[in-house]
Design a protein around this nucleic acid. Structure first.
Lengths: 116, 116
DNA sequence: GCCTAACATTGATGATTGTCAATATCAAGG
DNA sequence: CCTTGATATTGACAATCATCAATGTTAGGC
């Protein structure tokens, strides 16, 4: 999975410290960027906020469509992105789909920043 | 700044809790999304990582171009986005431009997540 | 077995974005 | 001054994305 790049001898007379090999590998960076991509949209941030603040810790699509002033398919699309990023959990009960925060996901994402 | 939306009487017989007004306002969400947009690219994450791990706490563009395998204009472009997001600080000394982490910026961004 | 209601999926479209080539700026040295 | 070297800016292009209209799917009620 990790194809560590070749470390050059650093015999360079560059302007400052050579820094050598990137601390964050390409694959790892791609993976982390996926989570931040999911957060990089105002409407998705609002969706997370609403779900987080919902009474029972969960909310269904019908409750998420109105406050965002978006069409139902668009909200469904955003929710799918958040689920794929591991931030939201989806549970279907009857005709309704209930979305809730994945426990610890927010904290784990904050940890991604600290471990850059 | 905060144009609080009108709170409906919630006489609705919706499927679950009405949730009423979004916890995160539209403007606030847009602002927060800007920071995450800056983080939503693998190469920008790697740039942050390299700068963070650099010896003197700073790195110049010439040291950032090679490990990312990107053209110099592209790296400059990414750095500008990170500076605009308030994550990096740019200081020009002579011909070289040195980039360093804005103190506390990473922690503050992590705080954005916690206060969703 | 229909019909309706909630949600997901598909297809299309306009907007944004990441990248590069070319050019501009700007400081240091001769 | 003129040249060189480091970085920024501009313009263009392909790729990705956010959104919506239309349609598909599935569960419940009649």
């Amino acid at each position: 999975m990790n194809s560590l790049p070749i470390l050059e001898p650093a015999t360079d007379e560059s302007c400052c410290a050579p820094a050598g090999v990137p601390a964050l590998g390409a694959e790892e960076a791609k993976q982390k960027a996926l989570v931040f991509k999911a957060l990089a949209d105002p409407n998705r941030l609002r969706l997370l906020s609403i779900v987080k603040g919902a009474g029972a810790g969960e909310a269904c699509v019908c409750d998420l469509t109105e406050p965002l002033d978006l069409g139902q398919p668009t909200v469904s699309h955003h929710l799918k992105i958040l689920v794929d990023a591991g931030l939201l959990h989806r549970e279907k009960r009857g005709t309704w789909a209930y979305y809730s925060l994945v426990p610890g996901a927010i904290e784990q994402t904050a940890g991604l920043l600290a471990s850059l």
